[in-house]
Amino acid sequence: MIKLTLRNIWRFAILVFLQIIIFNNIQFSGYINPYFYIIFIILLPFETPKWILMLSAFLLGFSIDILSNTLGMHASACVFMAFIRPFVLQYISPRDGYEASSLPRIHYYGFTWFLKYSVILILAHHLFLFYIEVFTFSGFFYTLSRALLSSLFSIIIVVFSQYIVYRK
């Protein structure tokens, strides 16, 4: 348990670092920016108490905000994403539920399950983020296209990272 907590704290720090140093500097054609750090919320264990889920999502977004001058934007998007996570997990749960001591990873529940899970969460986060950034619905489709293109990149990176970093 303690080991798992420590590992998640490490992951938190490393992901914030990576996002600021590398992913914030990746910009395809001026406006596609992958947000990889949200994989932290995706990978939290199933049994995480809801208030810890919410609090860590807020802190995650808040750290990114402070470091990239977007106070409140990432925090609100992350909190929203954390809020819908339990409902998404319930919605796509396998027929006999989640096994004890398993983690929401590609190795436990397979590619399709993980893809479905991360697509829903990442789309929710990105749409929320991009609309709160412009803070208006004028230019609705332009913002939508930015959000969708960025989501696509984030999803690809998140899914690939599962094969690169984590071994069973």
Binding site: K50, W51, M54, F58, G61, D65, I66, L67, S68, N69, L71, G72, M73, A75, S76, V79, F80, A82, F83, P86, I132, F135
Partner: peptide, 30 residues
């Protein structure tokens, strides 16, 4: 759970609005 979500969300949105007013000096910036 929902109330907690509401509290965090309102606080974040408050930060966004507060920070959008760009003449205001804010402490938490780069």
């Amino acid at each position: 759970y929902f109330l907690l979500f509401l509290a965090f969300e309102l606080f974040s949105v408050f930060l966004v609005i507060e920070n959008n007013n760009y003449q205001k000096s804010s402490f938490l910036n780069s």
